[in-house]
């Protein structure tokens, strides 16, 4: 299960999306999320779908790879859908006991499912096509103005990129520790909450010890490679906007404008 989370997992491929400046991708993702929550009407839904499908297509990331990320939150999505289905007030279609199924409920549930699915797909395109380092580079550069008011933007960005690199390693390690303790009869599943919390100790202690050790090693390895904070550093992949990026900005803004126009003039049937 833990392995299925695609968030933060880069998928190497050669595509226009991969080559875009991370700032463009961050900005576009933000616009895309906004559009998901403010679109109205079938026409807009079609535009969103077309936009998403187009980007997925151009990104050269296999679709099933993205769907893997959906699986991890399937339960959450179903719960949300069920809540929407039965708890939306309106004209009941059927009633059985306390449950009332309304037309609005069906619509809301459907819409919620679409939004969540599109949200996950859209954001995972960003993480799948942008290396964590590019992503943090993008954030670092976008947030640089804040360093003037004393926020250590470089350090935060470095911490984020290291965290992203070590998440898969630590997940794998958790798996190994669990197995090693299960081989000694540890039980991580049964029992009440208190017992479950207690049973986590044999898992968490080795995990923390190992994480600290790794941190120590890594700090030394970074120092050995002349790391000395952000000062005087050059970049292997400096962020420079190109023609491609300008085009992407324009596309995204046109996209948002279309969604907003639909919201105003083509709201049918919502």
């Amino acid at each position: 299960m833990l392995r299925d989370i695609t968030l933060g997992q880069y998928y190497p491929a050669d595509s226009v999306i991969h080559k875009l400046d991370p700032r463009v991708k961050l900005f576009s993702t933000m616009i895309y999320i906004i559009s998901l929550f403010c679109f109205r009407g079938v026409a807009a839904l079609l535009i969103v779908t077309a936009f998403l499908a187009g980007v997925i297509r151009v990104s050269n990331v296999p679709f099933r790879y993205m769907v893997k990320g959906l699986r991890a939150i399937l339960v959450l999505m179903l719960i949300t859908a069920v809540f929407n289905l039965f708890l939306t007030p309106g004209e009941p279609l059927f009633t059985f006991g306390v449950f009332r199924l309304t037309a609005e409920g069906i619509r809301n549930a459907g819409l919620m499912l679409v939004r969540l699915t599109y949200l996950i797909l859209g954001t995972s395109i960003m993480t799948l096509t942008t290396t964590p380092n590019q992503l943090t580079d993008g954030l670092e550069k976008a947030l640089m103005p804040f360093s003037k008011i004393g926020i250590p933007v470089h350090a935060i960005a470095m911490m984020m990129s290291i965290a992203l690199r070590f998440i898969p390693i630590l997940i794998e390690e958790t798996d190994k520790i669990m197995k090693a303790q299960m081989a000694r009869g540890a039980d991580f599943e049964s029992g009440n909450l208190l017992r479950k919390v207690k049973s986590m100790i044999p898992l968490l202690v080795p995990l923390f010890v190992s994480a600290f050790r790794r941190a120590d090693d890594l700090a030394m390895a970074m120092e050995a490679r002349c790391y000395n904070g952000g000062a005087g550093r050059t970049k292997m992949k400096p962020l420079r906007y190109g023609k491609r990026d300008a085009l992407a900005y324009v596309t995204v803004i046109v996209y948002l404008a279309l969604i907003l126009l639909c919201r105003r003039y083509l709201r049918w049937p919502m």
């Binding site: 390690e173 190994k176 520790i177 197995k179 090693a180 303790q181 299960m182 081989a183 000694r184 009869g185 540890a186 039980d187 100790i201 044999p202 202690v205 080795p206 010890v209 190992s210 050790r213």
Partner: peptide, 29 residues
Amino acid sequence: RELRNRVGLVFQYPEHQLFETTIFDDVCF
């Protein structure tokens, strides 16, 4: 679980299983 009691498996890295404050307690686990 009974099978795991009777077929003991020691993994490659001892760091993955040591967690108690003393060696003795750890072996008691």
